[in-house]
């Protein structure tokens, strides 16, 4: 295996007195797809938010593509430009059209020319099959369309790594599939992905590894087949029996 693109070592994090992450160790190599699952409050969202420092960890080191995350804001912005993120609540900018949502960061962060950024955005929007909605505003789209726009927006920064924080949890059941399809396509394209989700079907289809977290710890980490076929810890077995 080559040098990991994300290296998480002994990471600890507290919210006040409450410890959300306990001694997390995780290496992710390029093009690997990892699914993180676990009960709510287990720290899985916090973990991936630490990777682009939307949350800061208090102990341990996180190195993303050779850049260590620290107080240094320049490092943080560099990492964030390389790491795309998709949120549970879409978080599109409601005052901008879908196209402007997609071009805003490339133009102002990456200093891309406007025309170039628009071409790139249209390409990404075509990838997720909503190019025809490019001039609408987020409020005019369905949840599934909004989430796909959010994926396109993140991809417009041409990130090396994509983080997904429960991307389908806020969607109606019939819209989940369209978003998962877009994510499967992305995975097939060779993107490095870390996905927090409860969609076990997606995990089985795409993931190289599945991580089960509980109470701020990584309880089990195994290859996908192994994880579902014979989980080792009792906690994992219980979780899987409830969710499958």
């Amino acid at each position: 295996m080559s040098e990991p693109i994300i290296k998480i070592e002994n990471v600890n994090k507290w919210f006040g007195d409450f410890q959300v992450l306990k001694d997390i160790n995780l290496d992710v190599s390029a093009k690997q797809k990892i699914v993180v699952c676990g009960p709510s409050g287990s720290g899985k969202s916090t973990l991936i938010r630490c990777i682009n420092r939307l949350e800061e960890h208090q102990k341990g080191t996180i190195i993303v593509d050779g850049t260590e995350l620290s107080e240094n804001t320049k490092n943080i912005e560099q990492v964030r430009a390389e790491v795309g993120m998709v949120f549970q609540q879409f978080n599109l900018f409601p005052h901008l059209s879908i196209l402007d949502n997609c071009t805003l960061a490339p133009i102002w962060v990456k200093k891309m020319a406007k025309k170039e950024a628009q071409e790139l955005a249209m390409k990404q929007l075509e990838q997720v099959q909503i190019a025809d909605q490019a001039n609408k505003f987020p409020g005019q789209l369905s949840g599934g369309q909004q989430q796909r726009s959010a994926i396109a927006r993140a991809l417009c920064m041409q990130p090396k790594i994509m983080l997904f924080d429960e991307p389908t949890s806020a969607l109606d059941p019939e819209m989940i599939k369209e978003v998962l399809d877009a994510m499967v396509n992305l995975a097939k394209g060779g993107m490095t992905m870390i996905v927090v989700t409860h969609e076990m079907g997606f995990a089985k289809e795409v993931a190289d590894e599945v991580i089960f977290m509980d109470e701020g710890m990584i309880v089990e980490k195994a290859e996908t087949k192994e994880f579902f076929a014979n989980p080792k810890s009792d906690r994992t077995k219980l979780f899987l029996s409830q969710i499958l």
Binding site: T73, R80, M85, A154
Partner: peptide, 12 residues
């Protein structure tokens, strides 16, 4: 989420 999204796109 608006702050999160803007930050995650690398905006200062």
């Amino acid at each position: 989420g608006q702050y999160d999204a803007a930050k995650s796109l690398g905006m200062g």
